[in-house]
Design a protein around this nucleic acid. Structure first.
Lengths: 206, 206
DNA sequence: AATTTTTTATTGAACGGTCAATCAATAAAA
DNA sequence: TTTTATTGATTGACCGTTCAATAAAAAATT
């Protein structure tokens, strides 16, 4: 049933099938034959729409990454110029959005992380994402902390988020989103409290 | 030059070659042919000493894991029954030991993490390690924090350590061990400070 | 001491299997 | 008739494993 405008439909189907295949079989066993079968199409169609397996994997990573960007941005635009803590919480919430905490997406992320170490195109995507997270966090902390402290807080929070996420992907019981969010919130609160105390003491001296 | 007692020598050589191969090529391209070539032996020797590629990979992970366990234990036994903060710092130091922060080992860890999601034997090893870290941290925090707070502090610190490590493996500039340790120390200090303030306030009421 | 035998270590060609990519063939819409 | 969509058999490359052959040390025998 060849009609026009199949491209976006097939691309979506194949990306979804890729996520499922990586979830169930792992990246190493997610062959184009199995992905195509899962999507209900032939193998040839993958090369036709993605110019090969690498193209499909890259598109899949882009898709997940784009969802993440959207999840964060949606929450932040709803905030306007709210205080830093609200923005930091929004960034945390975005990173633990439903679109990022499903088993298949977390497993795919981990697989891409590993393979990005030796695959330039994926490496590029992963680094852009890493820096965006760090830069967003750093920028908000900077509104209430000195430069160096803001950087360290951002580095710590970024690592905490990734670590919670990594452990969630590996854990038998999966990721407890509520608990993970709370731990990240606590980290933010503590960092900002430190700033408040410093400010208070400074005022005391005045 | 076939002598007796080659087994331990060959095993060490092959595990080292595996780490190097994964570092340079990635797990997917670390074929037994390439590993064997790097070790300066033939492919057959791998099956002879490790009963196949899977056996070699599992042995490699066991080796790295064993180094980690030793690095932590060495520091902790030197402490005796020191205060919790000292033990927590020792655990952190062990996790950022030289044997665990070389590029090849960090890359191998990440590769094993990803593949452990679909490979039972590796999964078992990874989970044992995860729980040991969590249990050690939880146990020390418990000495000064209520049960629930201790658990959360342990979960947070474990995630922070793994996250710092993960980001170090992926970052262009590698892992800044000193900075990572400092961030983890700070997390510990803050958690313990919270306990001290609570205790002080309780005393105030008395 | 000289020899044969046994044991241990090692090789690498051969084999069966799997993979991604290709492309001629086909079919339905435009 | 032309264009777009799709198939799936074919191809060539590469993978892990196996195993008969080889070699040298060690042990046993003479």
């Amino acid at each position: 049933m060849p009609k026009l405008g199949m491209q976006p439909i097939r691309r979506r189907q194949l990306i979804q099938a890729t996520l499922e295949a990586i979830d169930e079989l792992g990246l190493a066993d997610a062959t184009i034959a199995r992905i195509a079968k899962r999507a209900g199409v032939s193998t040839g169609i993958i090369s036709h729409y993605f110019a090969g397996k690498d193209g499909l994997l890259e598109a899949t990573m882009r898709h997940v990454l784009s969802d993440l960007g959207t999840a964060v941005l949606e929450r932040r635009t709803a905030l306007g110029n709210a205080p830093p803590e609200a923005h930091l919480r929004a960034i945390i919430d975005g990173n633990f959005d439903r679109s990022q905490t499903s088993r298949s997406v977390m497993k795919t992320w981990l697989a891409f992380w590993a393979s990005s170490m030796h695959h330039r195109p994926l490496q590029r995507l992963q680094r852009v994402n890493d820096r965006r997270l760090y830069s967003n966090l750093s920028c908000q902390f900077r509104r209430v902390l000195p430069k160096q402290e803001a950087r360290d807080a951002a580095r710590g929070l970024a690592a905490l988020i990734d670590g919670l996420w990594l452990r969630g992907a590996l854990a038998q019981e999966g990721l407890n989103v509520e608990r993970a969010r709370q731990l990240a919130y606590d980290y933010v609160r503590v960092q900002l409290d430190a700033a408040r105390h410093t400010r208070t003491r400074a005022n005391d001296y005045a």
